[in-house]
Design a protein around this nucleic acid. Structure first.
Lengths: 114, 114
DNA sequence: ATAAATACATAAATTTCTTATGTATATCTG
DNA sequence: CAGATATACATAAGAAATTTATGTATTTAT
């Protein structure tokens, strides 16, 4: 787990990127997917996730459909077309930001398991 | 300029890294150096910078010496030995975090002007 | 002379996230 | 089968970090 300061500000970017790829996902599913993809290094908390999803919905970035599974409900989120634009913008901005930080912090590019 | 959300959480890392390289710097100098190195993409605000410097000093991460230049004062900051350790930790953590994000956001490594 | 730059500082307001709490069903484990 | 854990949502109080605004004062450029 990273110190929480670092992760701040990336939540929307992560949500929009995942939803851009996966068609639709529900909140809990997003937390699990992020945990899985990062080997537990990033764990989204519900208290941060749900309010953010609600806000994105209110802005027309996401739409929802509630589905009953067994006896429990799931709220699926889908990105709208403007949401896809925003997802690209956010990812590009973060990418650009990383390059700036690599230069500023004098980091060597790492060719890892990618 | 990046959306401010992104820059959040990187302030201490930036300060400590610069001070680790430059021996000693004063607050205004840090803002100018960051602005210069990032082509204006990151501009530290005084309202964020000074309280953070004060906090780092209170924690023994930085020490200060006030110098009179002409008729104006400059407060120079220097990293202590524990500050150097913290600088390395912060930079390494951010580097690790970036790798995680590159994977999560499916970004291609960019060989740029570096 | 006036504006802009240099150089510090702090306080109120805002944003964003953490922590805590609440509800309810489903599944695993001994 | 009872209790713990996992699934699945939600919100509210508090904390943390930053923005915006304001203040003081000197120096340099126009």
């Amino acid at each position: 787990m990273y110190s929480s300061e670092l992760i701040k500000g990336t939540l929307k970017t992560i949500i929009l990127k995942l939803l851009s790829e996966e068609k639709r996902m529900y909140g809990y599913e997003i937390t699990q997917k992020v945990k899985e993809l990062t080997g537990g290094k990033i764990q989204l908390t519900e208290g941060a996730l749900y309010p953010t999803l609600h806000a994105l919905e209110a802005q027309g970035i996401l739409t929802t459909e509630v589905v009953n599974v067994g006896n429990r409900l799931r709220k699926y989120y889908t990105v709208t077309s403007s949401g896809k634009l925003m997802a690209d913008e956010k990812v590009n901005e973060f990418s650009d930001f990383m390059n700036t930080m690599i230069f500023l912090l004098d980091l060597k590019p790492k060719m890892g398991k990618a």
